[in-house]
């Protein structure tokens, strides 16, 4: 019984060691430039989502017209800023 347990212990230790050291996967990583570009695109996407959302709330009747106009304008300006930034990054890379 003890012998069996000892065997099992040795076996599992070896198995674990093999598993830990046998791997050779690549790491999921991207270059800083790619990451930055992606982050900007996410930002743009988020702003577009906000715009869709805003539009929907307006259609649902939650917002008065001036509120809607103003917010939409601000979001568009914000999106334009991000788009310019994306263009700059695209040039650089």
């Amino acid at each position: 019984m003890t012998l069996l347990a000892a065997f099992a212990c040795v076996f599992f230790t070896a198995l674990a060691a093999w598993f830990v050291f046998a791997g050779d996967e690549r790491l999921p990583e991207d270059s800083p430039a790619a990451a930055r570009l992606r982050a900007l695109r996410e930002r743009k996407q988020a702003i577009y989502d906000n715009l869709r959302d805003l539009h929907f709330e307006f259609l649902a009747g939650k917002l008065a017209q001036p509120d809607y106009q103003r917010s939409r304008q601000m979001l568009e300006t914000e999106a334009a800023r991000v788009v310019r930034e994306i263009q700059r990054c695209g040039e650089a890379s």
């Binding site: 791997g23 050779d24 996967e25 690549r26 790491l27 999921p28 990583e29 991207d30 270059s31 790619a34 990451a35 992606r38 695109r41 996410e42 996407q45």
Partner: peptide, 24 residues
């Protein structure tokens, strides 16, 4: 959920999988 299979190119991270860079 967050590891890449062996051999996949590293900068193939699509926006959906971007968080995987944090997993290690």
């Amino acid at each position: 959920g967050g590891r890449l299979r062996p051999g996949r190119a590293a900068d193939e991270l699509s926006p959906k999988h971007a968080h995987r860079a944090l997993v290690p």
